[in-house]
Amino acid sequence: MEINGVKIAAEFAEAFDMTATRIIVTADSAQWVKIAATTMTGFATSVIACGVEAGIERYFLPTETPDGRHGAAILLFGFSRDSLVEPVRNRVSQCVLTCPGTACFAGVTADGIKGSAIPLGRSLRYFGDGFQTAKRLLMSPPERQSGAAIERRFWRIPVMDGEFLCEDMLGHVSAIGGGNFLILGQSRRQALLAAEAAIVAMRKIPEVIMPFPGGVVRSGSKVGSRYPALMASTNQAYCPTLVGIAETSLVEGTAAVYEIVIDGLNFAAIAEATRVGIIAACHAPEGGILAISAGNYGGNLGRHHFKLHEILADAGGVK
């Protein structure tokens, strides 16, 4: 398969079951929303060392948020509900509570099963040192801004610029992490331009994040290492500087490879993000893309397989 002259390898991305939650952060201006959201999603590229994978799903206009201010939707992924509890609490308390004028809302409904939802305001309220108050309000459910209202509980924690308002509990949903594709370029510049174009296109797709810096990974990894203490190590098969001394998966002439890793709330969202990302990369402004591939472990570790040829079957310009 080829798109715009770029070879699409007959490979598949292998992804894993994860658990995700969504937080809506609002603030007085788009600038402060971006600061809060960026700070909160920092150091959240991989569960391997960061606890969670997190990213900004999208930004909201004031007409789209619960409090009528600028906002952002942040998705956080972990291996289980329990693995999300502490990172979510810590990130909100250190990065959002501290940020001027912010408020925090659930982005998915807490399903009401005691012990199942993720406590947020319920934990952070203690910062109020007894001056905090709770408020139950009839509001639209987190997923939409209209329809039958439900009762939602918020904590109001006094802070130096007024109050930090924070939803009591967050819902969580089953999700998928580790969708990916690889961009093999003739030069680092061309590969990076293609990766940037892919990210721009993929950020328009809801329910996905690309958690790595700028959405792009240069250090693709394999499972295990010759050093027993390491869970993962560099994937030499994709390192252009090792062609000739290690078994390679690169096509001839490859000088740089960038990986786009995708976490999403469902298979369809990741598949769509993969599709638009690859198409954008194949039409990158300076060209120079030799091939698109994907990372997997032979299909033995993750049950979600994103087969590139199937995902791109209806893409325009496919040969």
Partner: peptide
């Protein structure tokens, strides 16, 4: 005197009903 987010939410809640 204060202008708080809770006032906006109370307004939203009032509109809801």
């Amino acid at each position: 005197n204060h202008d708080l987010v809770i006032h906006r939410l109370l307004g939203q809640g009032l509109r809801q009903i």
